[in-house]
């Protein structure tokens, strides 16, 4: 028994050493960002590896959050036309929430049909969606740019609106969403719906009131991935949006990278601020992530 206990202890120590090493590796770049962001010298790299440099200050955070972004102005001569953090945040939230809303609504609806109905074209349809997963978003840039340029809403090409951007991102996240949600719906017993139908519910009613509440983990994962793609996407945003008023946080971050110099402290301060919403969303949805991504794969 004591030998067993000693073994257990050794195993625990080994595990802890291994996991602490991984923790150190994971945290290292993040702490590097923090260390630069609070450095008072606004230099590109600290000359020594210390977490809290001498004279550490939150000035960079204050600047990022409260001062106008002078590179992003409709008219550089007038500071009132420059973007502020709140405007950038609003744009980013709109694109990210739009993408996750579209993904979850359209994805769940299509996945439900693929999971529950037997219909003409089912296999082909499903295969078609999965084949689209292989299409890199960047592979459609050239034609999408040309096409969305031609569709105008109130004199403005759809390409350069935030809704247009969210729709374009949704097309990128839908194939995986449908595939993942379908796998999850497959594991929800059919009898539950049948019981609801016998009780007089419509098919849509049963779907909304019986299936969706049971599929919360997979829905949460869809919302999360949609949010992430809308929040961080850069390529299309950079190509499609023109007016600085529409710029997102990711674009503001990119535009801080000057050709010769970058204000590193403010750059990393904005980077850290921008990381907060997705990290919080991850933590909030963490208990759903594992089952939401794997239940369909394990049982189906």
């Amino acid at each position: 028994m004591t030998k067993h206990k000693a073994n257990e202890l050794l195993k625990q120590i080994g595990l802890q050493i291994f996991l602490l090493t991984i923790t150190a590796i994971v945290l290292f770049p993040i702490l590097w960002m923090v260390s630069i962001a609070i450095d008072p010298r606004n230099i590109d790299k600290p000359l020594e590896l210390v977490l809290i440099p001498d004279g550490a200050t939150l000035r960079a955070f204050k600047q990022v959050l409260t001062e106008p972004y002078t590179q992003l102005c409709a008219n550089p001569a007038e500071p009132e036309t420059c973007m502020t953090f709140l405007k950038l945040l609003g744009n980013s939230l709109m694109v990210a929430l739009g993408t996750s809303l579209f993904s979850v609504v359209l994805g769940a609806s299509a996945a439900y049909a693929f999971s529950r109905f037997k219909f003409i074209g089912r296999e082909t349809g499903l295969l078609g969606f999965i084949a689209l997963l292989m299409l890199p978003a960047t592979a459609t840039i050239a034609p999408l740019y040309v096409l969305l340029n031609q569709i105008k809403f109130g004199g403005e090409p759809l390409r350069s609106t935030l809704v247009g951007l969210a729709v374009a991102y949704t097309s990128g996240s839908l194939p995986f969403a449908i595939w993942n949600l379908k796998g999850y719906f497959d594991t929800v017993p059919k009898e539950l719906e049948e019981a609801a139908l016998i009780d007089g519910a419509t098919v849509t009613g049963a779907f909304i009131r019986v299936i969706l509440p049971l599929a919360v983990p997979a829905l949460a994962v869809t919302v999360l991935l949609g949010f992430m793609s809308g929040w961080t996407e850069f390529v299309m945003a950079w190509l499609f949006l023109e007016s600085p008023e529409k710029f997102t946080l990711a674009m503001a971050l990119r535009s801080m990278q000057g050709q010769f110099t970058t204000p590193w402290s403010t750059f990393f301060a904005l980077a850290l601020v921008m990381s907060v919403p997705p990290v919080l969303l991850f933590f909030a949805l963490q208990r759903y992530i594992v089952s939401g991504l794997t239940v369909g794969g394990v049982k189906g």
């Binding site: 994971v26 993040i30 960002m33 992430m228 929040w231 961080t232 850069f234 990711a250 971050l253 990119r254 980077a271 921008m274 990381s275 997705p278 990290v279 969303l281 991850f282």
Partner: peptide, 8 residues
């Protein structure tokens, strides 16, 4: 590493 935007 997954939650922090890849761009950053």
């Amino acid at each position: 590493p997954w939650a922090i935007p890849g761009l950053i």
